[in-house]
Simulated assay, not measured.
Amino acid sequence: MIEKQTIQLTSQWDKVFAKSDKVNHQKVSFHNRFGIELVADSYQPKNVKEKLPAIAVSGPFGAVKEQSSGLYAQKMAEAGFLTIAFDPSFTGESAGTPRSVASMDINTEDFQAAVDYLSTQDEVDPDRIGIIGICGWGGVALNTAAIDTRIKATVTSTMYDMSRLNAKGYNDSIDEEARYQTKVSLNNQRTKDYKSGTYALAGGLPEEVPSDAPQFLKDYYAYYKTNRGYHARSVNSNDGWTVTSTLSLMNMPILQYSNEIKSPVLMIHGDKAHSLYFSQDAFKKLTGDNKELMIIKDATHTDLYDQEDKIPFAKLVNFFNEKLN
């Protein structure tokens, strides 16, 4: 029997997007295989009696379900899907200590746990389950689709390969010696953390962005640090991840087996996104004739977080309607 951790749930609507009157909303919880209790927002179309196709949503990396993933989940529920947007382990309202820790292995398990939950709900057709991964959770979604045959269709939006980024830097700019020095620094930090009994945080986004900062940093600031997307429980809106979280990300090539995904995959990315190459390269590795890369004109990385005139929700609805049929 899985022993549940005590978790505190909010009761008020505290999303960064408006509540839809077209769907029913409730908080739900479920555990992953490591015994960590995860919390999700469930969105369900109103006045539907038959079993529904279902979609689990998570991301961006460092965000919470009250941000982008919740928007995606609510929009897809309006289109007739039962959806959940969940907080990954160690973040948001989900359990797990220490806080603000990331692991590609545990986060992949989180997605599988979401499928466990959906597969056992009376309102859900267990043979019609899909997933959506946003930003860093796009890579996690592909990793999950490669291992979980219950997933019948996968969408990634503005995908990051977090393991590649942490191991090699943007555009693979970090060489072996620089990678080694990073490992030296991070392992020294482990010793400091163990001595102090606390885990140092990386610090998150700056409170002010210099005028000469890269555009993508300005874009992140505009989402996470302003009224547009700020949330009190979001890692990226506040003090960031633990410094040593980077170690596990550096050493696990998350897309190792993505070529084995047999189910349909739709990858979406903006043509103005600094991260576009992650989707382009990941797409090249996918096999079969049921894979598609959709490039959105004049869209940046963060445009696909919440800009409804840029996010191709109609395409997502058609994709899941067809592939989960």
Rank of each mutant, 00 (worst) to 15 (best):
residue 1 M to K: 13
residue 1 M to P: 12
residue 4 K to W: 11
residue 6 T to P: 00
residue 7 I to W: 01
residue 9 L to Q: 12
residue 10 T to Y: 14
residue 11 S to Q: 15
residue 17 F to W: 11
residue 18 A to S: 15
residue 19 K to M: 08
residue 19 K to D: 02
residue 21 D to Y: 02
residue 21 D to A: 08
residue 23 V to W: 05
residue 26 Q to D: 12
residue 27 K to C: 04
residue 28 V to L: 04
residue 30 F to N: 12
residue 32 N to F: 03
residue 32 N to K: 09
residue 33 R to A: 13
residue 35 G to A: 08
residue 38 L to K: 13
residue 40 A to S: 08
residue 41 D to G: 06
residue 42 S to R: 15
residue 42 S to F: 09
residue 55 I to T: 07
residue 56 A to G: 10
residue 57 V to N: 03
residue 58 S to I: 00
residue 58 S to M: 07
residue 61 F to N: 11
residue 65 K to F: 05
residue 65 K to L: 00
residue 66 E to Q: 08
residue 67 Q to T: 03
residue 69 S to D: 12
residue 69 S to G: 07
residue 70 G to Q: 09
residue 71 L to V: 14
residue 72 Y to C: 00
residue 72 Y to P: 01
residue 77 A to V: 06
residue 80 G to Y: 12
residue 80 G to W: 11
residue 85 A to H: 09
residue 87 D to C: 02
residue 87 D to Y: 09
residue 90 F to K: 13
residue 93 E to M: 05
residue 98 P to A: 05
residue 99 R to M: 04
residue 100 S to I: 03
residue 102 A to E: 15
residue 104 M to C: 09
residue 107 N to M: 10
residue 108 T to G: 10
residue 108 T to V: 04
residue 114 A to G: 08
residue 115 V to T: 14
residue 115 V to I: 15
residue 118 L to Y: 14
residue 119 S to Q: 10
residue 125 D to T: 00
residue 133 G to M: 07
residue 134 I to K: 11
residue 136 G to P: 01
residue 138 G to P: 02
residue 138 G to I: 00
residue 139 G to R: 09
residue 142 L to A: 03
residue 145 A to I: 05
residue 147 I to G: 01
residue 148 D to R: 10
residue 153 A to M: 11
residue 155 V to M: 06
residue 155 V to D: 06
residue 156 T to Y: 02
residue 158 T to W: 01
residue 162 M to E: 14
residue 165 L to F: 12
residue 172 D to S: 08
residue 173 S to N: 14
residue 176 E to S: 12
residue 178 A to M: 14
residue 184 V to I: 15
residue 187 N to R: 13
residue 188 N to E: 14
residue 193 D to C: 01
residue 196 S to L: 01
residue 197 G to M: 00
residue 198 T to Y: 11
residue 212 D to W: 10
residue 214 P to A: 08
residue 215 Q to F: 06
residue 216 F to T: 14
residue 218 K to R: 08
residue 224 Y to N: 06
residue 226 T to M: 01
residue 228 R to M: 01
residue 229 G to L: 03
residue 232 A to M: 10
residue 233 R to Q: 13
residue 233 R to F: 03
residue 234 S to Q: 07
residue 240 G to D: 14
residue 241 W to A: 08
residue 244 T to N: 05
residue 245 S to A: 10
residue 247 L to A: 05
residue 248 S to G: 12
residue 248 S to V: 13
residue 249 L to K: 08
residue 250 M to V: 10
residue 251 N to T: 14
residue 261 I to V: 12
residue 261 I to M: 02
residue 261 I to W: 08
residue 262 K to D: 12
residue 264 P to N: 07
residue 265 V to A: 04
residue 270 G to L: 00
residue 274 H to M: 04
residue 276 L to T: 07
residue 276 L to V: 13
residue 277 Y to S: 12
residue 280 Q to M: 06
residue 281 D to S: 11
residue 283 F to T: 10
residue 283 F to W: 07
residue 285 K to C: 00
residue 286 L to I: 02
residue 296 I to Q: 09
residue 297 K to T: 11
residue 297 K to N: 12
residue 300 T to N: 11
residue 301 H to W: 07
residue 303 D to S: 05
residue 306 D to W: 09
residue 306 D to N: 15
residue 308 E to A: 03
residue 312 P to H: 03
residue 312 P to T: 07
residue 313 F to A: 05
residue 315 K to M: 01
residue 318 N to I: 00
residue 319 F to W: 05
residue 322 E to K: 11
residue 323 K to S: 11
residue 323 K to Q: 15
